[in-house]
Amino acid sequence: MTREEIVNKLRERFGADAFSTSEFRDNYRIILPVERVYSVLEYLKISCGFDLLAELGGADYLQYPNARDRYGVWYVLVNTTTGVRLIVKTFTNDPEPTVPSVYPLWKGADWMEREVYDMYGVVFDGHPDLRRILLPDEFTSFPMRKDYPMRGRGERHNFPIISRPES
């Protein structure tokens, strides 16, 4: 099944205006509203054979030129039999950025979703164990957001000092 056939199948199933597509170099993207993302991904997995979720990531489009939505989440899907790659993309916004979890479809999404939550605060609805993965639990910010400074807000300096005579 080629990329065009898959997109045609999706159009038949979900309607012609359910999603938009874009192409850049060899990347083919399907851009979806967040309400429809789970059903389309489920369809892609079950009926189109996309058995490998190669990558799941997020970004903050706060300062991006001509961006309309703040948080983007993408899924890079691969069909391991035919080798077709497809990128599915969706957007979500403050104050409660929420995207449905794809953990029921691909178990590999587990940690990748937790990382996006850790870095951006995007909540994955339906994830069985959504908590911080890389940063300490006590950390209160989402460091990859564009309004968080690169050098942090002084968290890295707040530790007790052990000097030589007292250790």
Binding site: T140, G154, N158, P160, I162, S163, R164, P165
Partner: peptide, 30 residues
């Protein structure tokens, strides 16, 4: 020799470089 504090230890805290508005105190406890 361990009872004598080393010269220049500890180095100046970098926390002062962060403006007070940006500061967030969450002290650690070893």
């Amino acid at each position: 020799e361990f009872q004598i504090p080393a010269q220049g230890h500890p180095p100046r805290s970098l926390a002062v470089d962060v403006p007070p508005t940006e500061r967030m105190v969450a002290p650690g406890n070893y």
